[in-house]
Design a protein around this nucleic acid. Structure first.
Length: 382
DNA sequence: TTAGGGTTAG
């Protein structure tokens, strides 16, 4: 007990080296530190850039004390696991563990497969799954989900779908998270048409839920709807997105979803839809538009070359004291430049500089702080 | 922090 407190105190006082020395000494005397103690020292070593030593300690902990990450301790060892998966040490660690007579449980496999998938190392992930199969460890749904996410990350949707179908063949229940992962992959890969039938399946399931004895398809959750709305907007199907949105009252009070739809409508040149969404949001739902709402509207008008209206919205935003962040200011600058509204460009640049936005600075090539002429010239080169 | 509160230009 006392030793653990001492190590904690040393770590908190940035005396990591001493902490490690103490740790080594007491371990040498037969003490088995707790997971918390190991985590703290390992994290401290990572913080100080001593990756090799952190990993060495991690492996020592696994080999000699049989402590390996499982679902519950995943977050504690996240950095170490990520780093290990990057260095191709996982399979070797598993083998070494077993040579030492330690049992490697399915939870540890879950964690390591997930780490490989997040790194996009699908071959390594698959070979760990193969190893699980050899040992008659049945991969749980989370493993399949990790693989689906991993293949989506690599843009390999056919492999993602293969894994998804495989779950069904093997009788592994595909929960809503698994569906969401696949739908998200399709939507981000501009293949919303592949996602739609699956989504309908889920909707049907929600209708039939109480009458069916076996319910093999999960009900959609809020995130499912978000993915579909986003996917439809990004595949030129704003009308479908809006009607889906209108048919599901539970999300109607969410400003982020409104902003996303308004943005989607504007991006597709559907200014009328954007306007009516804006009205519904502000007048009917009583929601206050935020900076993102305005940026979406202004950007939409600029895209269509409607300078006067864009300006109106910009001034209204300013009047309300709303101010976009640095990234969105740049988007506005591009829009104003496109519509030849150099007065707004200048106004925006001055405001950005006053707010200390870094991206406003390189545009001022002149010596004075308010050299607005050179600001305009700077914009031309954007 | 294996489940994601979400986009935006060139």
């Amino acid at each position: 007990m006392y030793t653990a407190k001492l190590i904690t105190r040393l770590c908190n006082s940035c005396l990591t080296d001493t902490a490690v020395t103490v740790l080594e000494e007491v371990v040498g005397m037969g003490w088995k530190p707790s997971v918390d103690t190991y985590t703290m020292v390992i994290d401290n070593l990572f913080d100080r850039g001593r990756v090799d030593y952190a990993l060495k300690l991690f492996k020592y902990m696994a080999l000699h004390h049989g402590i390996l990450p499982d679902v519950d301790s995943y977050s504690f060892f996240l950095r170490a696991i990520r780093m290990l998966s990057r260095r191709d040490d996982i399979s070797k660690l598993l083998k070494d563990m077993e040579d030492e007579g330690n049992y490697v449980g399915p939870e540890t496999f879950n964690v390591f497969v997930d780490a490989y998938c997040k790194e996009g190392r699908m071959e390594d992930a698959e070979s760990l799954v193969k190893l699980m199969n050899q040992r008659r460890i049945c991969p749980a749904a989370v493993i399949y989900k990790s693989l689906i996410d991993g293949y989506c990350l690599k843009g390999n949707m056919s492999k993602s779908r293969e894994v998804f179908d495989l779950m069904s063949h093997r009788g592994v229940f595909r929960d809503v998270a698994v569906y969401n992962s696949l739908l998200k992959g399709y939507c981000e890969d501009s293949k919303v048409e592949e996602a739609i039938p699956l989504f309908h399946e889920m909707m049907q399931s929600s209708v039939k839920h109480n009458t069916e004895e076996f319910n093999e398809v999960p009900k959609p959750d809020e995130y499912t709807y978000f993915i579909m709305l986003w996917g439809l907007c990004n595949n030129n199907q704003v009308e479908e997105a809006v009607s889906l949105f209108q048919s599901n009252k539970k999300f109607n009070l969410n400003i982020s979803v409104y902003n996303m739809l308004i943005h989607g409508a504007n991006k597709n040149g559907k200014l009328d839809i954007a306007r009516s969404l804006y009205n519904e949001m502000t007048v009917i739902k009583g929601l206050q538009p935020n900076d993102m709402t305005y940026v979406a509207m202004i950007n939409g008008f600029c895209e269509q070359g409607l300078a006067a209206e864009a300006k109106e919205w910009f001034l209204e935003m300013k009047e309300k004291g709303l101010w976009p962040n640095e990234a969105t200011c740049t988007i506005l600058l591009i829009g104003f430049r496109k519509t030849k509204q150099l007065d707004l460009v200048e106004m925006l640049l001055l405001e950005m500089e006053a707010r200390g936005y870094e991206s406003a600075k390189p545009m001022f090539s002149g010596p004075g702080p308010f050299s607005s002429l050179s600001a305009k010239e700077g914009m031309v080169s954007l």
